[in-house]
Nucleic acid binder design. Structure first.
Lengths: 237, 237
DNA sequence: CCTACCGATCGGTAGG
DNA sequence: CCTACCGATCGGTAGG
């Protein structure tokens, strides 16, 4: 099944999924042609993500995408079985990137503390790290993949939705212990599950109103979010 | 121009906008036929809202809508100039209803206090009232109009967007003094403008995950939101 | 990966 | 408001 295969296949540019025509004959040789095809495929994804975000999935024709990519009208189907598989690849690529960035951000945060033995970043600092990284993935330049995933979920199959939900749960898993810790210390006043849903909503909705070069920076957004959600720790008696 | 006309016309079922064919001959008489047409029009809007929400605007054909309404395939165009005007009417109807409900909720809150002279609801209570009402408009049964407005903004014209933005600003206007008051008292820790955007995001996003009969009630959602956003008032020195 | 093409479906209209 | 219909466009394929 396509979604499962696509999910287990590496999504980075190094381990290229084979182009459709060469399927069923073992691992294809990586000729110069194959590497170009990888670039073309990536370009196709980028153009599709941009168009899906601006016009929606149903409002974008495969011809629109082909034209933007500089291909003939039927050529997207050389790289993807159908339009829906292209959308799913965009969404999956967005989640892969978001997960990688999240892990990198948390690692970087921990590194600053590991040398000083015993020291750990506070739960508030960890949440700040997660929120900043989330805003960057949502609002950074050329990051159309995640907004497409957030707003076109209804256009993929149930199996594809399940595959993405799995990645989303993995993404959320990094947040839960941080929120639990804040709840336990009295700095988060809403039940963890609802708090998580409400906080993600506050962040995700920013793709609707945030415009670069105008108003707040991502840093200001992060600071404001922390101030809004995280209460002062109550003084211990 | 259609959007402007539609905006200034009353949207309630009593003052019916004239069906298209009788245009240009003064106010049409309200025969039994006309009243039926009003019901048909309303039914059309309800069915369209449900389909637009489930399938998106571009994913819903006018034939889908006609079939759901029990009409022939070309009959929606008897009531609306085109598919886009139908979408705009759905969105506008949603905003009209949301505004009316908001005013009613605030009036009801004030009434409880008006008899006891001098007493006023706290800013926190006012925010609770606004949040509860907002959740009800977003998540209540058969309320597809507002979710459609939130997610199909790109499918209407710039003029129609401007008309809806005006209604949205009116809706937000009720929140601003409440948030300012909470900010001044130290119960809201994020700048008012960003706080408003983040809070609306947290609430609006609930249409993505909230399911009736499962998990939290609207009341629990409201309580959790208040707990999350509104900090304890600092003790005065 | 391109060109030419297919059947299906779309928004919208005419004529009643 | 229905029936019949129009031109345009769509996703996808064949054959190279």
């Amino acid at each position: 099944m396509t979604p499962a295969n696509a999910l287990s296949a590496p999504a980075s540019a190094s381990g290229l999924p084979p182009p459709r025509p060469s399927r069923g004959r073992g691992r294809p040789r990586k000729t110069v042609d194959q590497m170009d095809e990888g670039n073309r495929r990536q370009h196709l994804l980028t153009c599709a993500a941009s168009l899906f975000r601006r016009q929606g999935f149903d409002g974008t024709s495969t011809r629109d995408i082909a034209l933007a990519t500089g291909m003939g009208s039927g050529s997207p189907f050389y790289h993807f079985e159908n339009k829906q598989a292209l959308l799913f690849a965009v969404m999956q690529g967005g989640m892969d990137r978001a997960l990688a960035r999240q892990k990198a951000a948390l690692s970087a945060l921990m590194e600053g503390y590991d040398t000083k033995s015993g020291q750990r970043p506070t739960a508030k600092a960890q949440l700040g790290c997660l929120i900043r990284q989330h805003f960057e993935v949502l609002l950074g330049e050329g990051n159309d993949f995640i907004p497409v995933m957030l707003y076109e979920f209804k256009s993929i199959s149930a199996e594809q939705q399940a595959a993405l939900h799995k990645l989303q749960r993995e993404y959320e898993a990094a947040w839960v212990p941080v929120l639990k810790s804040l709840y336990a210390s009295g700095q988060l006043k809403a039940p963890v599950k609802l708090a998580r849903l409400l906080i993600f909503g506050a962040l995700n909705w920013s793709v609707q109103w945030y415009r670069q070069q105008a108003g707040a920076s991502i840093n200001e957004l992060t600071v404001a979010s922390i101030s809004l959600f995280v209460h002062d720790a109550p003084a211990l008696p």
